[in-house]
Design a protein around this nucleic acid. Structure first.
Length: 435
RNA sequence: GGAGGGGUGGCAGAGCGGUUGAAUGCGGCGGUCUUGAAAACCGCUUUUCGAGAAAUCGAAACGGGGGUUCGAAUCCCUCCCCCUCCGCCA
């Protein structure tokens, strides 16, 4: 959520930066400021009336104390009219605030000034690459074929159980998935200073609003319902990412500056309805309705957001380096950024069987956009209450990492080499070829 | 799911229709005293919104929302959360 006071003082800049952004509707700013002025005018008016009523009520109390019954009754009757005015004005204030709030919640974050203008992903500049595309003395296979041959994933039965887009990991596939989760959590907790948390896999709508999922992405979420009880529908949602619960851990709290920075990492499955995306690149496990992910969250003082963002990108890169996977880091342009983010780096890993790069991580600094939405603040040493910067990053998404891993490290005989750092977790050096 | 009890300031804990933003204690900050510290004593100690250049002034907030009233932390309704007991259950 943007700061209404900031918008008030930077109207043109707000409109300009909103316009450059995907999902940004700068035409709403005009109405927003209209409501803001109206709200403040009404507030001044109603507060004055309330001050009058308050002192009248005190006088009535005093009169009753002095047994001056008649005077008290007269005063009561006179004050009643003020009360009615207050009720009317209060309603108007409520309505004005409600509309203002709903516009504010619908506006995306403003891109950081360093973000290049652009219309789509075509315009995202590449920041760096690591490693290089591996060469094979044979035709590298797609993960779909590898999974079939090695019985890592049973696509057909996954679909039988829950429909297209849900995976049934089997045998070495299931073990590899589990090994990766543990490898990632250990890496981030032991080497990168994150505290592991294991959150609920459903959250309240407030949490979804807090991170900016709602109201914009209602149609992407799975709402749950208790049994046949329609009343409970929409009170909880399956998490689309661990960011939803973890970033909200301290919602509506006032932290002390000494408590910061806070680093959390968490494993969770991620549920995405992907409404309207059916049929788009759906073969295999690149785009699915449920995938595993290890997420990193940072809550940091407002002046440290960007230093910490760079560090977080490094944390995600480390994963790919240890797994010996070629990747590139790109900076998202204004036209391709997520709703809540002020600056986002994506990490794309090379998948030889696909002949393309796959997004496995997205690290964003949302600045105070989310903390304002969830009313998370910290008290500085000087005693000021400010909104911290909230950062989130995948460290990393698993399904695509799985794809890149088996496609990259496949060998001619159909077996898959396991990179050394992962070997202790899987217990073998190679996933053997099908016999 | 059933029956009770409870949610008040950083914490503990009063108040249960009137000048109470809220007693008291603890903690925290400042001061007096002291060579220094402790003790003792004195003062201060919430947040949000609005007006203002500022000093400051005004409003709101006692789990959330609504109602009664001239006036609500206090009464009524509703929702949420916590505790105890019973039932069910991995």
């Amino acid at each position: 959520m943007l700061d209404i006071r900031w918008i008030r003082e930077n109207k043109e800049l707000t409109e300009k930066r909103l316009a450059s952004r995907r999902g940004g509707d700068e035409s709403k700013v005009e109405r927003l400021l209209e409501l803001d002025a109206q709200r403040r005018g009404l507030l001044t008016e109603v507060e004055q009336l309330k001050a009058e009523r308050k002192s009248a009520s005190k006088q009535i109390g005093a009169l009753i104390g002095q047994k001056k019954k008649e005077e008290a009754e007269e005063k009561k009757a006179a004050t009643k009219a003020i009360g009615d005015q207050i009720t009317t004005l209060d309603q108007q204030v409520q309505e004005t605030m409600k509309e203002q709030e709903s516009i504010l919640l619908s506006l995306p974050n403003l891109p950081h000034e360093s973000i290049p203008d652009g219309a789509s992903e075509e315009d995202n500049p590449e920041i760096r690459q690591w490693g290089h595309k591996p060469e094979y003395g044979f035709d590298p296979q797609s993960h779909v074929d590898l999974c079939d041959q090695l019985s890592l994933i049973d696509f057909a039965r996954g679909a039988k159980l829950a429909g297209s887009g849900f995976l049934l990991y089997t045998g070495w596939g299931a073990r590899l998935e589990r090994a990766l989760i543990q490898f990632l959590l250990d890496l981030h907790t032991r080497e990168h200073g994150y505290t592991e948390v294991s959150p609920p896999f459903v959250v309240s709508p407030d949490c979804m609003t807090g991170v900016g999922q709602f109201p914009k992405f209602y149609d992407q979420a799975y709402a749950v319902q208790e049994g046949e009880d329609g009343e409970t529908l929409g009170k909880l949602y399956l998490v689309p990412t661990a960011e939803a619960p973890v970033a909200n851990i301290h919602r509506e709290e006032l932290l002390k500056e000494e408590q910061l920075p806070i680093f959390y990492c968490a494993y969770s499955p991620c549920f995405r309805a992907e409404a309207g995306a059916a049929g788009v690149g759906t073969r295999g496990m690149i785009r699915v309705h449920q995938f595993d992910k290890v997420e990193m969250i940072k809550i940091v003082p407002a002046d440290q957001g960007y230093v910490e963002l760079d560090a977080m990108v490094g944390n995600a890169e480390k994963v790919l380096q240890l797994l010996d996977l070629h990747y590139r880091v790109i900076l998202l342009c204004t036209g391709d950024m997520g709703f809540a983010s002020a600056k986002t780096f994506d990490i794309e890993v090379w998948a030889p069987g696909q002949g393309s790069y796959l997004e496995v991580s997205s690290c964003s600094n949302c600045e105070d956009y989310q903390s304002r939405r969830m009313n998370l603040r910290y008290k500085t040493r000087e005693g000021k209450n400010v909104f911290p910067h909230l950062l989130n990053g995948s460290g990393t998404a698993l399904a695509r990492l799985f794809v890149a891993l088996i496609e990259t490290h496949q060998q001619e005989d159909g077996s898959i080499r396991i990179p050394e750092p992962l070997q202790p977790y899987l217990g073998v050096e190679v996933i053997p070829a099908a016999s």
